[in-house]
Nucleic acid binder design. Structure first.
Length: 422
RNA sequence: GGAGGCUUCGCCUAGUUCGGUCUAUGGCGCCGCACUGCUAAUGCGGUUGGGGUCUAAAGCCCCUCCCGGGUUCGAAUCCCGGAGCCUCCGCCA
């Protein structure tokens, strides 16, 4: 949800943002109208209610004709108040619906346009030059790290087992991420991965992403696609002390239906229904959000340096931001088997958009509650294993282990292919 | 899954029998002042929160006794639905 005060004062800014996103501008008009209607209906309700309370209060002491008159009048008023209240409630709902449709106002400097209109900010590291590179599935199977076949047998396509060095790689990666985040002042969190509809709705995942989400019918709970959901909802309805940003690092499994991705990335574990992730999540004051966003990106790059894979940083275009972000930076690793870059991290500045839905506030200098800002960024995921295997592969099918991960693999610096025992 | 109890202004708590005087009691904490030649004790005063109105302050208005409905001129209080917490029983990795 965007800031209505901003909209009233500067509707053109919001319209320009909608254009950059290639989204509807008429939604802005509807939101303005709904806002106006809500304010008027609320004012009417409040004045009627005040009169009703005043007259009702006089009834116990009144007698005779005065009492009869008061009773007649208050009875009328009761009906009017009721009507005004339901009108106000309706106006509230209309406003909310209109509010949900309008995306966050993109940050100045964000590229306009769609998916392909990103801007490459920088490339880091040498692209791997490998003759006839093996892909991560072949490598992973070779060293006994990934078992896609049995994953499919037990759970279906896009499921997998991580075994031996694969399991250790993942645990090491996540542990390394949690350690780094902890050192940077993040509070490590292991959140619930099943959440109520409110949490899902509040973070905006029941809108355009609804078909991506697993739902447990019998219990009316959802499996989260990212720990962003339980982390954002963690402080819902609260007023926080945000003299310093509050930083959390969530470690969780993530579940995605991948409903719209038939035929895409079917090989290996690049795109799967279940993976693990360490996610950074920050609550801060809106004026600090821009700087914090750049810090999140820096932390992601710090983590990428530890696994020593080449990557580039892109500034995602407005039309590809998702409704809640005002700016998004992705780090994409070079995959030699595909000859292209693939997303490993993504960091979004959501400003007050999520916090307004979840009613997360802080007190400003005057002690007045204000809507907080939220940001998120990836610190490590199962997908990182793909990039690590492919980039650090050697001609014999073995894989070098980045120094930072070696302690988690029993000190090994190379993972050798094993002879398959079936 | 079954039975019962509970949920009040930061925390604890009175109030719910019998609807209006609840504009919610008291304690703790917190803030201010006074006093003692020190931040301790004591005394006095203040303190629910949120939204709106307003240039601002003051003031005023609405909402707020877990949430949502209902009854009523009027609901913390009565009725219905829901959530959470606790206890007991059953079942079970």
């Amino acid at each position: 949800m965007i800031d209505l005060r901003l909209l009233r004062e500067n509707p053109d800014l919001v319209r320009a943002s909608q254009r950059a996103r290639r989204e509807s501008e008429s939604a802005v008009d509807e939101l303005l109208a709904a806002d106006e209607e809500r304010r008027a209906s609320l004012r009417r309700f409040e004045s009627l209610r005040a009169e009703q309370k005043q007259l009702s209060g006089r009834i116990p002491k009144a007698t005779g004709d005065e009492k009869a008159t008061l009773l007649t009048r208050t009875k009328e008023l009761a009906a009017e108040v009721k009507a005004a209240e339901s009108a106000a409630t309706e106006a509230e709902q209309r406003l909310r619906r209109a509010h949900l449709v309008v995306s966050n106002v993109v940050e100045e400097g964000a590229p306009a346009g769609g998916e392909d209109d990103y801007v490459v900010l920088r490339e880091v590291g040498e692209r791997s030059q490998i003759d006839k590179p093996r892909d991560h599935q072949e490598l992973g199977e070779g060293i006994g790290a990934i078992d896609v076949e049995r994953g499919a047998k037990v759970s279906g396509s896009r499921f997998y087992y991580l075994t031996g060095p694969g399991a250790l790689l993942q645990l090491g990666l996540l542990q390394l991420a949690i350690q780094q985040a902890g050192d940077a002042g993040f509070t490590p969190v292991i959140p619930p991965v099943l959440v109520k509809p409110e949490a899902m709705e509040g973070t905006g995942f029941l809108g355009a992403h609804a078909s991506e989400v697993y739902r447990l019918e019998a219990d009316d709970l959802y499996l989260v696609g990212t720990s962003e959901v339980p982390l954002a909802a963690y402080h819902s309805g609260e007023i926080l002390d945000l003299d310093e940003p509050r930083r959390y690092a969530g470690w969780s499994s993530c579940f995605r239906r991948e409903a719209g991705s038939y035929g895409k990335d079917v090989r290996g574990i690049l795109r799967v229904h279940q993976f693990d992730k360490v996610e950074m999540f920050v609550f801060c004051r809106p004026e600090e959000a821009h700087d914090e966003h750049l810090r999140l990106l820096a932390w992601e790059e710090e983590m990428l340096a530890k696994v020593d894979v080449p990557y580039r940083v892109i500034d995602v275009a407005a039309g590809d931001l998702g409704s809640s972000a005002v700016r998004k930076y992705d780090c994409e690793a070079w995959l030699p088997s595909q000859g292209r870059y693939r997303e490993l991290t993504s960091t979004s500045n959501c400003t007050t958009f999520q916090a307004r839905r979840l009613n997360i506030r802080y007190r400003n200098a005057d002690g007045k509650p204000q809507i907080a800002a939220t940001l998120n960024g990836t610190l490590a995921t199962t997908r990182w294993i793909v990039a690590i295997l492919e980039h650090h592969q050697q001609p014999d099918g073995s894989v070098r282990v980045p120094k930072a991960l070696q302690p988690f693999l029993g000190g090994r610096d190379v993972l050798e292919p094993i002879t398959r025992q079936g």
